[in-house]
């Protein structure tokens, strides 16, 4: 079985965002980048799926980005992914552009099971998996917290508001991973050493963007409010303010 996992390289979640001079992107000086947190679950599931299918199964990781993604890709390799591919577009791409790049590569590799994170924590779109699935004509189940693949049958649980749906589908399939799907492993020392020697395959890609960013802003700063008190005697006043001033209860 050929299995792919798509990994996005994102700013550490502890990053304080500063807007770059173009006013359309973030200033990434001093920002450290990490594997997108949800993609960690996708990587783990790809590795587990390979172990389950066994034989000559193989895992590929795919990243659309520039050379600065390589450090993150090394971490993916260290976890045990067999081959890493870095697709370098001629300019930063929107979600559809990324999905086009990924789908072309997945098609030429012939992967029938493709894992994504449910969302990348930079643009927070949550759509690249579904777009890629559609471009490939694959089935797709999103926000998955439990997964079973038997032959070509897929049974998954996906998280929705207030519950979980049990979903049935078939291969070929795209799965987007939610926290809870598994417990991601740590890289072993052996894995880290092996990853250093591995080759990252580089590809070029060109596409046009449909989404045009006009401006990036910081949200309006929230004014600190007031401290009402430091013991239970403050409670009636809090309730009064919520009722009469904020009018929310």
């Amino acid at each position: 079985m050929k299995i792919a996992v798509c990994v996005s390289n994102v700013p550490d979640t502890a990053t304080k965002i500063k807007i770059a001079q173009d006013r359309k992107s973030i200033d990434s000086t001093g920002v450290s980048f990490i594997i997108n947190p949800y993609d960690e679950f996708a990587i783990e599931e790809a590795l587990k799926t390979k172990e389950k299918f066994g034989g000559d199964s193989i895992t590929y990781s795919l990243t659309v980005g520039d050379d600065s993604s390589k450090e993150t890709i090394r971490k993916v390799l260290a976890l045990g992914v067999d081959e890493a591919i870095l697709i370098k577009p001629d300019k930063p791409l929107d979600s559809l552009g990324i999905a086009k790049a990924l789908s072309e590569e997945i098609k030429s590799l012939g992967c029938e099971i493709v894992f994504f994170g449910k969302q990348s924590v930079d643009y927070d779109s949550g759509i690249v998996g579904q777009l890629t699935a559609e471009l490939l004509g694959y089935n797709c189940i999103t926000v998955v917290v439990d997964l079973k693949i038997e032959n070509d049958k897929v049974i998954a649980e996906r998280e929705i508001e207030g519950g979980r749906e049990i979903v049935e589908s078939k291969l070929p399939i795209v799965i987007t991973a939610q926290k809870g799907l598994n417990e991601p492993r740590y890289a072993s020392l052996k894995g880290i050493m092996a990853a250093k020697k591995k080759n990252i395959i580089e590809k070029q890609f060109q596409s046009e963007n449909l989404l045009e960013i006009l401006e990036m802003n910081l949200p309006p700063a929230k004014q600190p409010g007031r401290i009402i008190g430091s013991d239970v005697s403050a409670v009636p006043e809090l309730v009064r303010l919520l009722r009469e001033e904020a009018k929310v209860i």
């Binding site: 700013p11 965002i17 359309k24 973030i26 927070d124 449909l210 989404l211 045009e212 990036m216």
Partner: peptide, 19 residues
């Protein structure tokens, strides 16, 4: 012109869709 939060709401983008 659309607005959406990015970086979990640490920033906002205004954008157009050119289609």
């Amino acid at each position: 012109i659309f607005t959406k939060p990015v970086y979990a709401g640490k920033a906002l983008i205004n954008f157009k869709l050119n289609s």
